[in-house]
Design a protein around this nucleic acid. Structure first.
Length: 769
DNA sequence: GAGCACTGC
């Protein structure tokens, strides 16, 4: 119950003190954007002491935050680039023409007026409106960061988007990427001292905020794709709402698709709204008259019907996961061949699409549809069978038909047993609309929904629950503490999570000693928040020098932060398992991962080109091992910055592996299971869930106690990536959690008591001698 | 003896 107590105390605190402190720390003038006392910070050419452009500047006459679309246009038309002083390229003027053709351009003046009238603006633009590329540029011309010294930031939920949009906008502004326009994502900061406009991932802005609670580098922050409601976007919105109250000079724009616009407006104290139409084609929607029993079968049938009877155009089918997709692809291909023979249908190529597919194979979806089999024959088409990845992350032009069975895999969190799992669930109305929209990108399209119209209207929820309601929040709570949020219960989130989820997170962090009993961030917690890791992993890494194995734990942590490195193709499972057994360590999967990594590194040192081939032969993922290497380098840098030593126990030492297993426990002592007296079933400590060790394990020794990395809920309850441990270690390494007083009577308690007794006797014998 | 929707730091 300690969690309840500590969280009550947290909520009882008013956040006045933090607000006052922040106000004092904040060096911005409250009433004026351009503080003369800050003039010394400003750099660049052609400006006066007050941040207003001088008479000889191309921006002469511009009053920051009072500019007009006409002024912008004039400067854009100049033969020289007003920001760099360089002559504009030919390409620049070509792009400028297409930019002025975008729907959003017509409303440039209207946008500026709204922007001037308010601190927070909600901007709604459909796909194809040009909002992501244009709005930030309009803001740059109005803010003139080259004079004010305050950047414009635009966040994206995904890295690729941040990178590609930044490149596009750099071209549009005729500047070099990384100079006036740049981007910042994990592993890559493409910005410089001249950067005015910065595209970045939402997670990256959150990281920055941990060290700059006022986000003082920015004059305007634009949150793009806010309707996606990622964890980071939700936290940023709440944070920005707070900061906006302290920093009247900070402007905020929330950009979103139409559906939730009013919800955003209400949340931001009735902020004004500007809507811009998109540029898409109409999509005709068809529903099934009766509910379908087997949606995969119905989907395959629909695809084949479209192919047999509808005019030219590619097909996009949404299914839920890899297996289902591969299976459907096979069936569609087979049936389509038959159609070709029987009714002279055109050729149909089928491509699977999902996130874990290697990038080269993902690229194939952009191949052109096949030509007719013979001259004058029916045209060919392609059919893409995809997960939700095609709903948001990837857009494919040329899609005319969408088949939507109405399901996707979604993460859900059960705080009672502290388990996140994936569940096939019905999609939301917003999702269904997004999917349908994929059919109208190049010409009018059709969307076949494999559910009834009544089901759409009555059974589908409006929008998918935001991620914050479906996640374990331990990491989020730690981040918020580091962000200086004192009062978590009254932190004004758009959709506050269930109290039980919050309690669980506080409890977990308290056990990990990241929060003290008063809910305050401890030194350990502060350090843990510096790492881009879940709290248990961060604590394990920070504790590892005490166990003389920080080098090894650093590697294991990195390997646990990337997708599975062991590859197991469906047609070659036996051989893959054989290869994996070469790396197997009898004490568990963590040590097996380490063995594979060490072998990979040994290979890379000798022959970096051969490493790829070597991985292929050994059924290891070169991509994921390289990415683990990348993560490792980042984590290592953070360790060095904070004076955490990188040490190893000599390999010849008999405690080399024991030290590693003990260090694993320093973070994962809450993820431990004990074998029941009979059979193969284990029970998790405290949560008391019956679990099986996942069949992918290398554990062969019959351990009574194991620690696990992951609890997976599929056909059964499994624990995955397991390592054997000794019960006496638990009480030694995590005495508070394993305080026997707190355990209910039962097998677990009895077994722990026996271990404690054995240990006492051993110690007594030692001291007798 | 099984499966990994998708992101992100």
């Amino acid at each position: 119950m300690s969690d309840l107590r500590s969280s009550k105390r947290i909520s009882a605190e008013a956040d006045d003190s933090s607000r006052k402190k922040a106000r004092k720390d904040n060096d911005m003038d409250e009433d004026e954007s351009y503080n003369p006392y800050l003039a010394h910070r400003q750099q660049g050419n052609g400006k006066s002491h007050h941040g207003v452009p001088s008479a000889d500047s191309p921006f002469a006459g511009f009053q920051p935050r009072k500019t007009t679309a006409e002024q912008h246009s004039k400067v854009e038309n100049l033969s020289d680039n007003a920001f760099t002083g360089q002559p504009h390229s030919q390409k620049y003027f070509q792009i400028l023409e297409t930019r002025r053709d975008l729907p959003v351009h017509k409303q440039r003046q209207e946008f500026l007026e709204k922007y001037h009238s308010t601190q927070i603006l909600v901007f709604v633009g459909e796909t194809g409106s040009g909002k992501t590329t244009q709005i930030p540029q309009y803001v740059v011309y109005d803010e003139l960061p080259n004079l004010s010294g305050k950047m414009v930031a635009c966040t994206q939920p995904r890295r690729v988007a941040a990178m590609s949009v930044a490149q596009r906008v750099a071209d549009e502004m005729d500047v070099k990427l990384g100079e006036e326009v740049g981007y910042s994502i994990r592993f890559e900061d493409m910005t410089g001292p001249k950067t005015m406009l910065k595209y970045m991932t939402d997670g990256m802005l959150l990281r920055e905020a941990m060290h700059d609670h006022e986000m003082s580098r920015y004059g305007c922050i634009i949150l793009d794709e806010a309707h996606e409601r990622t964890l980071a976007t939700d936290i940023l919105m709440a944070l920005l709402k707070q900061i906006a109250a302290r920093r009247p000079d900070l402007k905020i724009i929330i950009m979103s698709a139409t559906l939730d616009a009013q919800k955003f407006q209400r949340y931001f104290n009735d902020a004004p709204l500007l809507a811009v139409p998109g540029r898409t084609h109409p999509v005709e929607i068809f529903y099934t008259p009766e509910p379908e029993r087997d949606y995969v079968e119905a989907a395959i049938r629909t695809v084949l019907q479209i192919h047999a009877s509808e005019p030219e155009g590619d097909i996009l089918l949404f299914l839920t996961g890899e297996d289902e997709i591969e299976d459907a692809c096979r069936k569609i291909s087979m049936e389509a061949d038959e159609l070709q023979r029987e009714v002279d249908a055109g050729p149909l190529v089928v491509y699977p699409l999902y996130g874990t597919l290697p990038p080269q194979q993902q690229q194939r979806i952009f191949d052109k549809a096949p030509p007719p089999l013979r001259k004058g024959g029916k045209p060919g088409r392609k059919c893409i069978v995809s997960t939700n990845i095609a709903e948001t992350s990837l857009t494919i032009d040329g899609i005319v038909y969408v088949v939507d069975p109405g399901f996707s895999k979604q993460k859900i969190y059960n705080p009672r047993i502290r388990v996140e799992s994936l569940l096939v669930s019905p999609i939301s109305k917003a999702s269904a609309q997004q999917r349908a929209g994929r059919a109208g990108r190049t010409k009018p399209g059709k969307c076949f929904r494999l559910y009834t119209e009544k089901a759409f209207k009555k059974e589908l929820i409006e929008a998918t629950y935001p991620e914050i309601l479906r996640s374990n929040l331990a990491n989020t709570v730690l981040e918020l503490k580091k962000l200086g949020v004192e009062d978590l219960v009254h932190f004004d989130l758009m959709d506050p999570p269930a109290p039980e989820t919050m309690m669980r997170a506080l409890e977990e962090l308290n056990y990990l000693a990241c929060l003290d009993d008063d809910g305050e961030l401890t030194t350990l917690g502060g350090l843990a928040s510096e790492f881009p890791l879940d709290p248990a992993l961060a604590v394990m890494l920070i504790s590892s020098p005490e166990f003389y194995c920080s080098n090894e734990i650093l590697s294991i942590t990195s390997l646990l932060s990337v997708p599975q490195i062991f590859v197991r193709p469906a047609n070659n499972r036996k051989r893959a398992d054989e290869m994996k057994s070469h790396f197997a360590h009898p004490d568990g999967d963590h040590l097996t991962l380490l063995n594979a990594y060490h072998a990979f590194k040994g290979q890379s040192v000798n022959d970096s080109h051969g490493a790829k081939q070597w991985c292929h032969e050994h059924f290891l993922s070169f991509r994921h091992l390289s990415s683990a290497d990348n993560v490792r380098a980042q984590l290592k840098r953070i360790m060095e910055t904070h004076g955490l030593e990188l040490v190893s126990t000599p390999f010849e030492d008999k405690n080399y592996y024991n030290n590693i297993r003990r260090a694993l426990l320093s973070g994962f002592f809450m993820q431990v299971a004990m074998k029941e007296s009979s059979g193969k079933v284990y029970r998790t400590v405290k949560d008391d869930q019956a679990v099986l060790i996942h069949p992918s394990t290398v554990l062969r020794t019959e351990y009574d106690w194991v620690l696990y990395n992951e609890f997976v809920l599929t056909s059964k309850q499994y624990i995955r990536t397991c390592t054997g441990i000794r019960p006496e270690w638990l009480m030694e390494i995590a005495p508070t959690y394993y305080d026997l007083e707190t355990f209910d009577d039962g097998d677990v308690k009895r077994s722990l008591m026996r271990a404690a007794e054995k240990k006492r006797r051993k110690a007594a014998m030692k001291s007798d001698r």
